[in-house]
Design a protein around this nucleic acid. Sequence first.
RNA 1: GGUCGGAUGGCCGAGAGGCGAGGCUCAGGACUGCAAAUCCUGCCACACGGGUUCAAAUCCCGUUCCGACCUCCA
Length: 462
Amino acid sequence: MSAQLRLYNTATREVADFKPLVANKVGIYLCGATVQAAPHIGHIRSGLNFDILRRWLTATGYDVTFIRNVTDIDDKILHKAVHEEIPWWAVAAKYERAFSDAYKALNVLPPTYEPRATGHMTQMVELMQRLIDNGSAYAPGNGDVYLEVRKLKSYLTLSNQKLDDLQSAEDADLTYKKDPRDFALWKAAKPGDPSWPTPWGAGRPGWHLECSAMAHAYLGESFDVHGGGLDLIFPHHENEIAQSQSAGWSFANIWMHNAWVTASGEKMSKSLGNSLQVHEILKKVRGIELRWYLGGAHYRSMLEFSFDALEESSVNFRRIEGFLKRATDLLGATPEGIISAGFTEAMNEDLAVPTALAVISEILKSGNTALAANDLDEVKRAASEIRGALSILGCDPFDPIFATDSSSSAETLDGLISLALEQRQAARARKDFAASDAIRDQLAALGVVIEDTASGTRWSIS
RNA sequence: GGUCGGAUGGCCGAGAGGCGAGGCUCAGGACUGCAAAUCCUGCCACACGGGUUCAAAUCCCGUUCCGACCUCCA
């Protein structure tokens, strides 16, 4: 059972064996950012959770094509452009950059392809043409194009809702829509708005069209996994399904949704302020620690954010890091990463990261014990298994992306501290503990922490 | 109104019929000149009320509270 990856599918509401459509290959489409504001930790959690999925699939031998789009044209971006008094495309570029920086800081791998909505207008127009031609969509003549949802019997099966149970929007305008629940594939241009030409008039895409068009462009009519946050199930993913299946494409095989980061029990939103933006939190903890925290909860569980919990998680991580550092010193080489059976079993069960962390804790314990006993084989095994696990979680401290800058002053620093440690050692040798402790305290005041071990004194910067 | 989650020890956070997840904190012990690091021991929890069962945190019924979505959302 441990050899078979099982994943939860929102569409069936159960965990089932993962069977790729094509042997040894996986196509994943993740709804990425609508680039209208700087990312908060909830946005980044989504990218992170799917990054772990992708790394796990890759590590277990799949050839993964991972698409994460950028939606760079939508209502909010236009509003923001007015507010910030810069062009809409400058808004999109600015926040796309902010997202890229955040992904990089948290070691979220770049997707195989990262398509932008504005780069796929042709594909969107083609899709609409197809939908109009087969009677699924209609253009009422005002420049809008709508999808007629009643024509698709499978509409709302992902969210398990009934069309007639939906509360219809109070401001639904039936001037052009046949049904208030029909949604806009395309919106007619308003004066001053950016627009692209179509056979039905100039305009811009509605929110959902771009994902169907881009998923089709890069992954074809059917693909393995479509992901996103829980809040995208309805309407975004339902509408993607509606468009794509109306076009005759079978679309995604498995739907995966990550849960939110909450604050005080509530879903994060802009009303909670900017303090939980990724770049703000990175002023307090390292990227690798933020990642360890955000990735540590199961992807389908809400993660209640607090700085206390973040700090606690960082303490735990530093312990693991400390072991790897000591093991590396003892072994005289960086351990290679290997994947242990326990870790595999946990990850294969719907990416049970919390269980995987328990596995890491056990390996850590035996590794530390082996370190004390100078059992090199066991130290090497433990360090390798831990490094292997950390690399899947994207938290490998030896990953160059997390490397602290090793400037030329590092050697000088090392020399200076060694000098102080030699003085301390001399004091200890003559049992002048007042002097030796004074040196230790002074170093501690500078942030240099000392540990006396059987093989000498180690130091690190806290 | 419809749909979907959740409530677990001081705190975080898994599990989903039996044999104490794990982490953090705290207390004690080992090691140490003292620290630090590490290891060991301790802290036997599952919102409430019924029920099923040899056995329920887990299944069933009911209740309370919290949250999410219903065309802006990761």
